[in-house]
Amino acid sequence: MANFFNLIQNENMKIYRKSATKIMFIILFALILTAGLIIKFGTHEKAISDNWKQELIAQNKQDQKVMAKMSGNAKNYYQERIAKNDYRIEHDLKPTTGKNIWNFTDDATNNLMTVIILFTIIVVSTSISSEFSWGTIKLLLIRPVSRTSVLLSKYISALIYAVVMILFMFVVSWLIGGILFGFGGLSAANLQYVDGHVFETNWVVYELKQYGLLSITLVMMVTLAAMIASIFRNSALAIGISIFLTMGGSIIVEILSRFDWVKYILFVNMDLHQYINGTPFQKGMTMGFSLSVLAVYFIIFVILGWLFFTKRDVAA
């Protein structure tokens, strides 16, 4: 039988030849460029002076005073800043501002990942439901290929699209950051603070890790969108619901936060940063707990989406 790679190739052809997809790349590029220009010309961050060591010492003293009045988790922010400042003074590492190639790339990653998630939701939803609304599904499913492989090829090609988008974002923001703020900033140290210790990490490895963590949200939302699209067979509905949930997830959590069972809600568990360098949403929640909750959701999404796609009559 026709091999699975051919199906992926077909789905890729359908994704990248669509003008909407090209526009998505243009939008992402425009967003990065605009952000770069605003940071370059629109902000007035004080340049780092030569006696930055004295300034850091002064800042540390100030922070310690503020911290003394605080209790609990609020202290964390200041503790981290003081530790990082100490590390810089000790190892003679001049601080950087937002106008640095790596800081810019990192900012782009954190802020534009949502855009990529939205775009991928649109891609996976249209990929599934437009076959029904155009009627092309009738010619697609009368081939010697199982419905399961058709659906899987659509899902995987949407994830490939997300990876392509992420790489595109990384390269473009790195280049724009370099062009606007100078490639000289490449040597800037990346200080990370974990469990009271400061250490330096490689930027590329660090960014990949960021993408990895953010991709959990991406995969969950894309799977959800794929499920909705295969249940309702309607792009507008699938895109609408998924985007509403992506954007409104935190509001839903907020409203339900007084209940204990809120910790079983999908959106609470998608952000794994909370276990790495932050505080968990609820006491007693662990990485393992969140991963299990996510796994359960994932399996439910996959089974429901698969059942509706493979078992229901095509009547459109």
Partner: peptide
């Protein structure tokens, strides 16, 4: 088969539509 109207991917060329279906069978 053609089931009802022959609905094709409108934004692809006729040739690419055929390539698409050709890839689905050995």
């Amino acid at each position: 088969a053609i089931v009802e109207n022959p609905e094709m991917y409108k934004y692809l060329s006729g040739y690419n539509n055929l390539v698409h279906y050709a890839r689905m069978i050995n």
